[in-house]
Amino acid sequence: MLTPGSRRRLLPRGPLALQALGLVVGLALWELIGALHLISWFPSLHAVLGRVGELAAQGKLQEPLVQSVTNLVVGYLVSVVAGIVIGTLMAVSKYVNFALRVYVDALMAAPSIMLVPVLYVLFGLSSFTLIAVIVLYASVFIMVNTRNAVAGASSALHDMARSFGAGPVAAFFWVTVRSAGPEILSGLRLGMGRAVKGMFNGELFIAVFGLAALDKSYEGAFDTTGILAVAVVVIVLAVVLSTIVEFANRRLNGWALSPS
């Protein structure tokens, strides 16, 4: 229970400190293994970060990064809109749910990469194909979370809104969708991770575009430092984007993160 005037904290300090500690220990181990040559081909952390700096200074990183991020942002936004709209329709209409469920379940269970060649056959070697791969990877997770969130939203709140005069549509948008927010946002966070995976897998498949093309060039030369430099950039990109979605989640749905 809260006393009047007391404030809420979005995330307790303890977990943040533990996260930071885990990261520092992991990075220190990496540096140690690399610096002491405990694994012959494994470069140290400072060597990899140095390579990232070199790539940036030589201008080799910027263009692939812009290509990849542009596709990622467009693909992710399409996934968000499609996932939320279709997921909501599946939650409110059993007919839509029955009709689409088989595809959703199949896409959840089957490895998405299986369908990537089909997309290349359909759309050719273009950014459009890469965006389609990202949508394939991300949208289904957003869809499923949205469907479950809306279907499981409190009917008592809906009744309450109706009892005070809200029409069915107003009650749905003001109460049902809002109370489904935390689970929808959690789907968006999962979707972001999947979108990054889709972006990289799609690019790897053709090795022409973006960061994966850069990665492929180092693979050919057995340049592990270069490969890890690209990996670091992709991981940082994924973490930053997921953190942005998580931050939005905490801002919008802080109420759902507190113990009841």
């Binding site: 709140l157 009744d159 309450m160 009892s163 005070f164 005069g165 109370s179 927010g181 749905n253 759902a256």
Partner: peptide, 25 residues
């Protein structure tokens, strides 16, 4: 006006906003 068994309060809204919700509607 209905008072519900499980309170049916908007979990994201303050007490004031919960009370004002019916008036808003």
């Amino acid at each position: 006006a209905v008072v519900f068994q499980d309170f049916a309060l908007l979990p994201w809204a303050s007490s004031l906003d919960n009370v004002a919700f019916g008036l808003k509607l």
